[in-house]
């Protein structure tokens, strides 16, 4: 057996696996984006299995409420950058591989360059903006993405954009969901998530990566797996063999600036902004801080009637819908200043 392959003897013994497969893993460059609930287990198993170069990108710091599902971290790591802590742990687990932490946010400006350095991307992100950005960058670069997403007890897994023998590419995230209204989909902080689901889905992502690189097993191409941790039932949904989308550029990135409660109070005193409440009528009935009322789902239809001479501040209960309102407003009026009230009325009331 090749030197250093003793560690991998129990996977080299697998039917369809060989020392050649192990060398493929050793030569592979895998980029894990997001070192959270999915990224921790995915990176752990990719490191264990001997992926030669493992990039880990996360600009976020460890917080206490991450620890119930982000198993690479402990309370002593709170406040430190996730990618850096993860790299530290994984180097102890497998010192023979190269681990490259990236502590910057993946944005429009750096995504193409980063994706170009890797063979395959693992989407372990926690927001739609980064998911679409990564998906589109990988499609432009012709590289596959192993997708994972979780919410409460339910997870999704797939592998996107794999080149088939005819030179066509399999479906990508936009074949499944062409666009998303982010404000309508609760995230894990709001709806909760069971930690073991993160482990199961993250390990399934690592599994697809290993199968793809070692060229062994049937990939989740043209399919999406839906798993429910409450009933333990899963289903695999067929999407199609070839992508029907045409991605020719990265998605337009729109800044959604926020304003703090303190700054807003000052601006209101100076009469320098117009307030717009984007909540529903029944929410407004209970409490409001003034301004016009245009529920988020009516904003697009009413956008032409807005006065563009004054700075806009959109508000809602928590700041999620108002951020979406800023995005819609800036799509129409890129030159007009608009802010979302950070933390929403929850923050206003303290």
């Amino acid at each position: 057996m090749e030197t250093g392959f003793e560690r991998y003897s129990c996977q080299i013994a697998l039917p369809g696996f060989s020392e050649t497969s192990q060398r493929l893993l050793q030569q592979a460059k895998v980029l894990v984006v997001g070192a959270g609930g999915l990224g921790c287990p995915a990176a752990q198993y990719l490191a264990a299995a001997g992926i030669g170069t493992l990039g880990i990108a996360d600009h976020d710091n460890v917080s206490v409420s991450n620890l119930h599902r982000q198993v690479l971290f402990g309370p002593a790591d709170v406040g430190r950058n996730k990618a850096e802590v993860a790299a530290e742990r994984l180097r102890l687990q497998n010192p023979a591989i190269t681990i490259v932490p990236y502590n910057q946010k993946i944005v429009h400006e750096n995504v193409l360059q980063l994706v170009a350095e890797y063979d395959i991307v693992v989407d372990c992100t926690d927001n739609f903006a980064t998911r679409y950005l990564l998906n589109d960058a990988a499609v432009l670069a012709g590289k596959p993405v192993v997708y994972g997403a979780i919410y409460q007890f339910e997870g999704q897994v797939a592998i996107w954009n794999v080149r088939n023998s005819n030179g066509y590419y399999t479906p990508n995230y936009r074949d499944l969901f062409p666009k998303v209204n982010e404000s309508q989909i609760p995230n894990c902080t709001e709806g909760g998530v069971i930690p073991t689901l993160a482990g199961i889905i993250g390990c399934m992502q690592a599994n697809e990566v290993i199968k793809y690189i070692s060229q062994n097993g049937e990939l989740l191409t043209g399919k999406v797996l839906i798993f429910d941790a409450q009933s333990m039932r899963s289903r695999i949904i067929k999407i199609g063999n070839i992508t029907q989308t045409y991605i020719t550029a990265l998605p337009i990135s729109i800044e959604q600036p926020v304003i703090t409660v303190a700054d807003l109070k000052q601006a209101l005193a100076a009469n320098s902004v117009e307030l717009i409440d984007v909540r529903n009528a029944d929410e407004r009935e209970l409490f409001d801080i003034g301004g016009r009322h245009i529920p988020l789902n009516e904003l697009e239809n009413n956008i032409d009637q807005l006065n563009t001479d004054i700075v806009k501040v959109f508000y809602c209960a928590s700041g999620i819908r108002s951020a979406e309102a800023v995005r819609l407003f800036k799509l129409k009026y890129p030159e007009v200043k608009a802010f979302s009230l950070e933390g929403g009325l929850k923050a206003w009331r303290g």
């Binding site: 499944l176 969901f177 062409p178 666009k179 998303v180 209204n181 309508q184 989909i185 999406v224 289903r235 695999i236 949904i237 067929k238 999407i239 199609g240 789902n297």
Partner: peptide
């Protein structure tokens, strides 16, 4: 269910096919 429309996109699968 008007909230469904506000999602922008959701997948419908029939017998496990898109």
């Amino acid at each position: 269910y008007p909230r469904l429309k506000q999602l922008s996109s959701y997948m419908i699968a029939v017998n496990n096919e898109y």
